[in-house]
């Protein structure tokens, strides 16, 4: 385990450097002269273009630019928004909690449902629930989230009028902001009406995003449980009269956790990618809409920073997945 830990930790900076290189080079993917484009296009006065070039550091040789970029990152400087002129790091911190609240809600909804479906499917192989679980998994992985979002909006907002959509709160609602998450802020402020409204606004985007964890968890849980249920040590447990519920929920669950942990490695990129589009459909004021408005407004500093943040999150999460694998399995824990 220690060796595994050491190797993974040694590789981490290399991967992170690579990731920064990609986001750094992304600006050079812009066709033509980035400074000219960012200064306003071909009609921009040459002085403005030069000023922009200096501001972006594009007048420096490439390696110098990269070193400057990385050393700024190390100091927590993610650059400045070309439009608002505010530090990107500050703007990200304002948006991050909102995005996380949506993702967390989706995982909280999706994980138990997916796990329940998957486990029941494995215990009753080829039964009704098994077929349902597999259909859900198949559809959940095939329906594009942005379309599903539109369907739910059509059904629950337009047709039935049960749930609102668009933003975290109704327009012109004021809540004292502390955490940046409307739901939490309303609770902290003791604002019951605001809390209910925030919850109602969260419902549709969270359910849409939850389809991903439901489908993936159901698929993984079913596979892992079915494999474990067929293993010899489960037969041993049965031979010794261990009750079936103990077998499923303790013997099998613990062993099935191992492959299930890898689920998070698959789940995270799917959630990060899916959340961007879902935020756009629901005008959810998180990182996804932030990224998209930056893309549309050609605010490259913001695009760079948000992409970097998401990629780093993803790399760190995969590291945690690998390490928890070792923690859960005593065989790996001691060997590695």
């Amino acid at each position: 385990m220690k060796r595994l830990l050491r190797r993974r930790l040694l590789l981490l900076p290399i991967t992170l450097l690579g990731v920064t290189a990609v986001t750094f080079l992304a600006i050079h993917l812009i066709p033509g002269d980035p400074a000219e484009i960012l200064a306003g296009g071909p009609l921009a006065p040459p002085e403005a273009v030069d000023a922009m070039r200096v501001r972006l550091g594009l007048d420096q040789p490439l390696p110098v630019q990269y070193i400057t970029y990385v050393s700024r990152l190390v100091h927590g400087d993610l650059g400045t928004s070309l439009f608002t002129g505010r530090p990107v790091a500050t703007e990200i911190m304002e948006r991050l909690p909102t995005s996380l609240s949506l993702t967390a809600a989706a995982v909280l909804i999706g994980l138990p449902i997916g796990a329940g479906l998957g486990v029941l499917a494995a215990v009753r192989r080829d039964g009704l629930i098994d077929h349902a679980a597999r259909t859900v998994a198949l559809l959940g992985l095939s329906l594009p989230s942005f379309w599903l979002a539109l369907l739910l909006v059509w059904a629950f907002s337009v047709k039935l009028g049960w749930l609102p959509f668009g933003g975290e709160l109704p327009a012109f609602t004021e809540i004292e902001r502390r955490t940046g998450v409307a739901l939490v802020d309303a609770m902290l402020a003791g604002d019951v009406g605001g809390f209910v409204e925030a919850l109602r606004h969260l419902a549709l985007p969270a359910i849409t995003l939850a389809v991903i964890p439901i489908a993936l968890t159901a698929r993984y849980a079913r596979g892992a449980f079915a494999e474990q249920l067929a293993s010899p040590h489960i037969r041993t447990a049965r031979a010794f009269g261990i009750p079936e519920r103990v077998i499923v929920w303790r013997y099998v669950a613990r062993n099935a956790m191992l492959p299930l942990v890898t689920l998070f490695g698959v789940l995270l990129p799917a959630l990060l990618g899916g959340a961007v589009l879902i935020e756009v459909v629901f005008s959810w004021p998180g990182l996804g809409t932030y990224l998209l408005s930056a893309i549309q407004g050609r605010d490259y500093a913001v695009v760079q920073a948000v992409t970097l943040l998401l990629a780093v999150l993803y790399v760190l999460a995969s590291l945690v997945v690998d390490l928890s694998y070792g923690l859960l399995d005593p065989r790996i824990r001691e060997r590695g």
């Binding site: 990731v19 990609v22 893309i295 998401l310």
Partner: peptide, 14 residues
């Protein structure tokens, strides 16, 4: 290390 959709977004954005 990049979620595929995010990478596609960034390339398209650039």
């Amino acid at each position: 290390a990049f979620p595929p959709l995010l990478l596609a977004l960034v390339i398209a954005a650039a």
